[in-house]
Design a protein around this nucleic acid. Structure first.
Lengths: 351, 351
DNA sequence: CATCTCACCGTAAGCGGTTACAGCAACCTA
DNA sequence: TAGGTTGCTGTAACCGCTTACGGTGAGATG
């Protein structure tokens, strides 16, 4: 590997000049610059990033906090790939890389502590990372909170954390949920139920309030027994749907706060002999891949998945460059109408 | 940030001793060692990885080559998340991190060249990466070939590349495909077709030969018009299925070389008024999430997805530690029987 | 008692960059 | 012509850690 010194000698200049050529090209004479560049190319020179990081005390890497929560072994992020695509491309534009930290609970290591149970902050300092991107991994909001308080620049995706140097990006869950419910109401449904996400989860609660908002705006009655809680997983959707079918005057339409739960609800409905959409209209949330594969294809509220990544990258870059912290980034959603909703049967008979 | 020097001064030892405490603990007196460790803890010391990498000329990072092929914008890796889970955990065990390189085609940069179109090898050298893990991203086998030839330790996942320091990990595709076909034959099918992956793709061709092998072993006739090619995508599965339904004596069973194509075939069959599994038995390959969601749930050949990651990590660690290069790593597959296959109708009428 | 071994530790030279500071022409201004 | 700019470049300190090498004293050996 060629070093800056070698180039300097071959060009008859000092090593400082070589460094300047790459960092402040305008301060060095055009002819010298071109000579250095040419020799660099011939020698296949690559600046040593370790040396540079050591010297400047900062690297061009962002840490990615993504651990599957050990309490939920089967958990998979619903749209990790799209997220990463957005994140990576936006980070690339700034010349930054994404480091997936290895932190396999080696708590015997120097620096592991309660405030940083798995060593992410530790790693951040060791590697002079610019910051951390936190990706929802089931339910580690508490751990995220610790990171956010650590002073390290943090941006969480779809988890509400805030701190001196921390924000998060999320969808406009309230508006998204409301649009789903409104869609059902416009089809003529008046008995609209919802299957919610886990309590305490920020997106889940925003979706509930969107549900309430739309129900109210449409002049429909609010019924406690039309709000049953799930945990975003498919199985909970099935269970919730069963409960909904057991109330008197069961709903003719259901808004599920996640596609997975919508699929679960679909299975439960089918199991109960109901047909979707004829007997039951169903709307999901997320627009993950299975939404378009399931039969019938699921009407759902689409999130801008790569947009999460892009927004997270922008936010973290802003923090690194010291821009003032702004509030959470809220991304718009979009209702994707497919085949899982039709007008209620009562209405149909009127025609 | 505390440095080694500070610890040394506080302990009244030299900085070399401090370094030894962390790298060759057995060479330093127990009392001294404990004193250093204690002070290190008090000062919240973290060794500077940049300095260490600069000094040792090696980092504890592995590069991840994962670019969505620009020629296939919609491409998504079928099981990226599981792969990453396996990769990350196995790498963690060795104290290594995964670096997702940003390489946004800045070809004006020093070091970009034809042999390294997107700058991965460049980045590998700059960061002193231990090696590269190449993840299939549509169809960049040629680019992978270049990496494999570069001398950088490379392990590809499910793409056949080999070089002085390169291997790959893949499933036992032949055996997997054969087991699928045999399953169909055992159900009584004799008109078994296959939808293949793209020509030139190693797993695709191995699956074809598994198909041939099983057909032969079961004493069934080989028919050219029962082998139609796809490209692993859903749409190609639909198109292929249409072609299969147009031959005379259309097949009663189809083995698709990917779940996505199987789903596509399912749609085509349904469009043609056929019911699955009653009129057509269908087997896929991969066992991705939609396989269990689709109606009917898809019988398929499951790959050990996290196992890919684990195996890739092992292979790359072996190369780093200089172990002899061994051949490609072949992982076993497993037939997952669900609801998309039943005996052929002809047979049924016999009962 | 001289010598050898060995465990332990310090000295110092790197690793490959960055950057504050100073030097030195050449060119302007008064 | 003295003094001040301006443009360019070199010197050298520094970033924090690793490691080859040499030195020291205690105990073992003859």
């Amino acid at each position: 590997m060629a070093t800056g010194r070698e180039i300097a000698e071959l060009c008859g200049v000092s090593i400082a000049t070589v460094s300047r050529v790459f960092n402040q090209p305008e301060t060095v004479n055009r002819l010298t610059r071109e000579r250095v560049l040419r020799v660099a190319r011939e020698l296949d020179y690559r600046p040593n990033e370790s040396a540079r990081a050591l010297s400047t005390k900062q690297s061009t890497m962002i840490g990615l906090v993504w651990d599957t929560d050990h309490r939920r072994p089967g958990w998979r992020h619903p749209y990790l790939q799209d997220l990463l695509i957005g994140l990576k491309s936006a980070l690339s534009a700034h010349g930054y890389h994404l480091l997936m930290l290895a932190t396999s609970g080696d708590s015997r290591e120097v620096g592991a502590s309660l405030a940083d149970p798995v060593g992410y902050v530790n790693m951040t300092r060791r590697h002079h990372l610019g910051g951390l991107v936190l990706i929802d991994s089931g339910s580690d909001a508490e751990a995220f909170e610790a990171f956010a308080q650590s002073g390290v620049p943090c941006v969480a995706v779809d988890v509400a954390v805030e701190g001196p140097k921390a924000t998060y990006v999320t969808s406009d869950n309230t508006a998204g949920a409301a649009s789903a419910v409104r869609h059902l109401a416009e089809l003529g449904h008046s008995r609209i139920a919802t299957i919610t996400g886990p309590p305490g989860n920020q997106p889940a609660e925003a979706r509930i309030s969107g549900y309430y908002k739309a129900i109210r705006e449409c002049g429909l009655p609010l019924r406690d027994d039309y709000v049953v809680s799930g945990d975003f997983y498919r199985a909970s959707g099935t269970a919730a749907m069963r409960r909904l079918l057991a109330v008197d005057e069961p709903p003719t339409a259901v808004f599920a706060a996640s596609d997975e739960m919508a699929v679960g609800a679909l299975l439960a409905a089918r199991g109960a002999g109901l047909r979707v959409p004829e007997d039951l209209a169903l709307v999901g949330f997320d627009d993950i891949e299975i939404a378009s594969v399931v039969e019938p294809a699921l009407t759902t509220v689409a999130q801008d998945k790569p947009g999460f990544g892009v927004a997270a990258a922008k936010a973290i870059m802003a923090m690194i460059t010291g821009a003032d912290r702004e509030g959470p980034v809220i991304l718009p959603t979009q209702l994707v109408v497919r085949d899982s909703c039709s007008p209620p049967r009562e209405r149909l008979s009127v025609f």
